[in-house]
Amino acid sequence: MASQGTKRSYEQMETDGERQNATEIRASVGKMIDGIGRFYIQMCTELKLSDYEGRLIQNSLTIERMVLSAFDERRNKYLEEHPSAGKDPKKTGGPIYKRVDRKWMRELVLYDKEEIRRIWRQANNGDDATAGLTHMMIWHSNLNDTTYQRTRALVRTGMDPRMCSLMQGSTLPRRSGAAGAAVKGVGTMVMELIRMIKRGINDRNFWRGENGRKTRSAYERMCNILKGKFQTAAQRAMMDQVRESRNPGNAEIEDLIFLARSALILRGSVAHKSCLPACVYGPAVASGYDFEKEGYSLVGIDPFKLLQNSQVYSLIRPNENPAHKSQLVWMACNSAAFEDLRVLSFIRGTKVSPRGKLSTRGVQIASNENMDAMESSTLELRSRYWAIRTRSGGNTNQQRASAGQISVQPAFSVQRNLPFDKPTIMAAFTGNTEGRTSDMRAEIIRMMEGAKPEEMSFQGRGVFELSDERAANPIVPSFDMSNEGSYFFGDNAEEYDN
C-alpha cells in the first residue's frame, strides 16, 4: 500500500510504541512475548500442572481467558453494579484439565481477579502490559475465525453469508486497541457500523446529549479505520460520505453494504499476525530463551520457528480426527482463516481442507461434555516452508469459486491468482447506482469489472525454506488448481455463540 510509510507498523501498534527502528520493534515485541511466557509459567505453578498438562491447549485457553477477564475493567465495573446470582464479580476462573488415573478430569478453578492481575503485572515488570493482553485477544479471535462461520451475524446486519472472507476479527472485544483495529476485516468494521446506525434509528437519543457526542466521535473513528483499509480513492470518498452524514440511517447502511461487497474484489488491507497460545510461549521462556534479547516478529519467520520446536497437546472428542484438529489450530496460529487453501497447503506441506470436510468441533470443551471418553493427542503445528504475512489485500483475480465463501483475504505475501467468483459478486451490483453516491458507485463498479483474471497478485513473492531466515531465496510455489480455494466452501461450520 502506498501510504505504508505514514502508518505505524503493526509491531508498533502491538507494543504501543512511538516510531521505533526494526531492532527496537523486535525487542519490544519480544518483551511482550516474554511477559506472556513468564505469566503462563507462574500460572502453571499456581495450578500445580504437570509439564504435559501445561502444554494442553484447553488449559492455555482457560488461563488466557482468566487474565483477560481480570483486566476487563468495563465488564468488571458492570458486574459490580449489576450483581447477578451466583456470579462473584471479583473472581474469575474456568475449567482446568488434569490427568488422573490414566483419565482426563475437569476441575473448575476460581481465583481472585486481583490475584491474577498481581501475577500478570509481576510477570511483566510491574506494568499492565496491555500489548500482551491484546495479543491474547487476537489469538482467540484468530481461533474463532478458523472455527466458526459468522453466517447468522452477517444475515442479521443485512449482509450476504458468502462475504465471510471479510469477517476477520469479528469476535475481537471493543477494547483491543490499535492492534485489534489493524486485524479487523472490512466486513467486521461494516458490521460494527451498521449495528451502531441501527441503534440510532431505533433509539432517538442515541446521537443526542453528552453521551451522543461520545457516540458520534466513536462512529467517526470507526469510519476512519474502515476508510484506511480501502485502497481505492472511490471507496475512500464513499467512506467520507458515510462519516460526514448528519443523521446516519438506511442510506448509510446501503452504502456500507455496497462497500463491503466491493471489497470482495477491490480488497481492503487487513493486517495478519501470528499470535500463538500462551502454552507455546511459556515452555520456550522456561527453556531459557530470551525473546527480548533475541527479538521477535509476528509477521516473519519467528512464529514458524517457534511452532517448529513446540509440543502442544489437545483434548480430542471420541469421533474427532486429531489431524483435522491440528489443521484448525495451525490455521489459527498463522492467522489464515480466509487465505486461499492452495497457498496454505503449499506452505504447510500437507493438504489443507475446507472447514466442512474437517471432523472436528471447536477447541474448547463445553462444561456439560462427558470427560470419560476424552483422549488427548499432539497437535501437528509444523510447516514445510515459511512466508511473510501481508497486510495488503493483493490485486484481484477471477477463479472458480464456491457456493460458500466467494473470495479470499490473503494472509501471506505469496504470488498467486486470487480466487473470487466474479459473476456471483457482480450480480449483486445491478441497477442500484442512484442517489448521492452514484458517481462513486459507478466508478467502483467500473474498477471491479476491469479486474483481470490473468493478473498475478504479489508478483514474484515466494515462500522460503525454514533454514532461509533472511528470506534470501524465494520459492514461487505451484498450486494444484483442481483443489478448492475457499475454506468455508459450501460450508456447515458451527455458528459462533458468545
Rank of each mutant, 00 (worst) to 15 (best):
A233M: 12
I347A: 02
F458S: 08
A472R: 08
L381Q: 05
H324I: 10
D372V: 01
L266R: 04
E73I: 15
Y111C: 07
R389G: 15
R121P: 14
A284I: 07
M426E: 01
V414R: 04
L306T: 05
A337E: 06
T433N: 05
T23K: 00
I265P: 04
N432Q: 00
A251I: 10
H135S: 02
D439F: 09
R162Q: 08
A27E: 04
Q405Y: 10
L266E: 10
G200A: 01
D290G: 14
R267D: 12
L358R: 12
P322K: 04
G228F: 08
A471R: 10
Y52W: 12
A278N: 12
V183M: 04
M163G: 05
S486L: 10
A373Q: 04
E18G: 13
F420E: 13
V329T: 02
I138K: 07
L381T: 14
R267M: 12
V476S: 14
P173C: 15
I347K: 13
A428F: 00
R446T: 01
N142P: 06
A178S: 06
S217F: 04
L47D: 10
M32A: 04
R470S: 06
K452Y: 01
N247A: 01
G30F: 09
I406A: 12
I41D: 04
T23F: 06
T360Q: 07
I301L: 08
R317C: 05
A178R: 15
Q399C: 05
K351M: 10
A387V: 14
D88L: 12
G485W: 00
I253V: 14
W330K: 10
G282K: 13
I63P: 00
R213I: 10
V109I: 08
A179L: 09
L298I: 05
E114F: 00
P283L: 00
D290V: 01
V155D: 03
S310Q: 01
S245L: 02
V363C: 00
F304R: 06
V363A: 14
F429K: 12
M13S: 13
Q311C: 07
V29W: 06
N211F: 00
P474T: 05
G282I: 12
N125G: 02
F230H: 10
L256K: 10
W386S: 01
E484D: 06
R261Q: 13
D497W: 15
G349P: 10
